[in-house]
């Protein structure tokens, strides 16, 4: 288990650049002097302050491994959200936001781990898993990586061009509504999509229903519950 790496001090981050991932998602690269570094899979608290002093804080997954004081997030627009509309549609380079972190440490991958890894992403759940893919490349790790990435259709893919170029990554796109170029008929994630050798460390991230479905398939395939780590968003009645 990793040592606690939570930093409680708020730091000022300056937006370095922004990049649209889809029509409703944007990556934001920030320079954060004093950033203590993080593991792939961890997240950060981000605080906005309105001109009258009102503040709101949300947690976002870090989309890339630590790179000095540079930090990258990807934010999905939530239609009736309070913070995401500002981050996706408003904030521009040179503007500032406050950050603190990293937060979490259970749902994280350390590039020193040589063993095989299965990443299972539903929608914007790709973000912390992309940090792991990028951390593997940055560390020149040869750990076998499989990424199963479920989206409605090709237009919902984040990091599309970059993912197609990652060396040694077994990328399995799952398109649930519209077929993609890989010939897999559209449909929900199934046993064939998740077929890897048992014993892999498994990370599953996505909406609650997706995570529950994926974990049920993994357990049915014989994976040990102790090998599966999950992070989920959204509710269940």
């Amino acid at each position: 288990m990793t040592e606690p790496a939570v930093r409680v001090r708020w730091l000022v981050g300056t937006v370095h650049s922004v990049r649209s991932e889809t029509a409703t998602a944007r990556s934001i690269v920030l320079d954060v002097p004093g950033w203590p570094g993080h593991l792939a899979g961890q997240h950060v608290d981000l605080r906005l302050t309105a001109p009258d002093g009102y503040q709101a804080v949300r947690s976002y997954s870090l989309a890339a491994p630590a790179d000095g004081q540079r930090v990258e997030l990807t934010v999905q627009l939530i239609e009736d959200g309070e913070v995401s509309p500002y981050l996706v549609d408003v904030v521009l380079p040179t503007e500032q936001v406050e950050l603190r972190g990293p937060v979490g440490g259970w749902f994280s991958w350390d590039p020193d781990r040589p063993g095989p890894v299965l990443l299972v992403a539903g929608g914007s759940g790709i973000v912390p898993l992309m940090a792991m893919v990028r951390a593997r490349a940055a560390a020149a790790s040869t750990a076998p990586f499989t990424l199963v990435y479920s989206v409605r259709g090709p237009a919902q893919r984040y990091y599309a061009e970059e993912l197609d170029r990652v060396d040694g990554l077994d990328l399995r796109m799952v398109h649930t509504r519209e077929a993609g170029p890989n010939g897999r008929p559209p449909g929900r994630i199934g046993p064939a999509d998740l077929d890897v050798a048992l014993g892999a460390r498994v990370y599953v991230c996505g909406p609650t229903g997706f995570v529950d479905a994926a974990i049920a398939l993994l357990l049915a395939a014989g994976h040990d519950a102790a090998d599966i780590r999950s992070e989920r968003f959204g509710g269940q009645p």
Binding site: Q55, E82, S230, R232, Q236
Partner: peptide, 30 residues
């Protein structure tokens, strides 16, 4: 450009919390 969505009901919540009517599920594994 950030205005925030003040809670119209003005419920008193602990600092840094927002109101949900959902029941989110959080757990570390299966």
């Amino acid at each position: 450009g950030f205005l925030g969505r003040r809670d119209p009901e003005r419920v008193e919540l602990p600092p840094g919390q927002y109101l949900t009517r959902d029941f989110p599920v959080l757990q570390a594994g299966p």
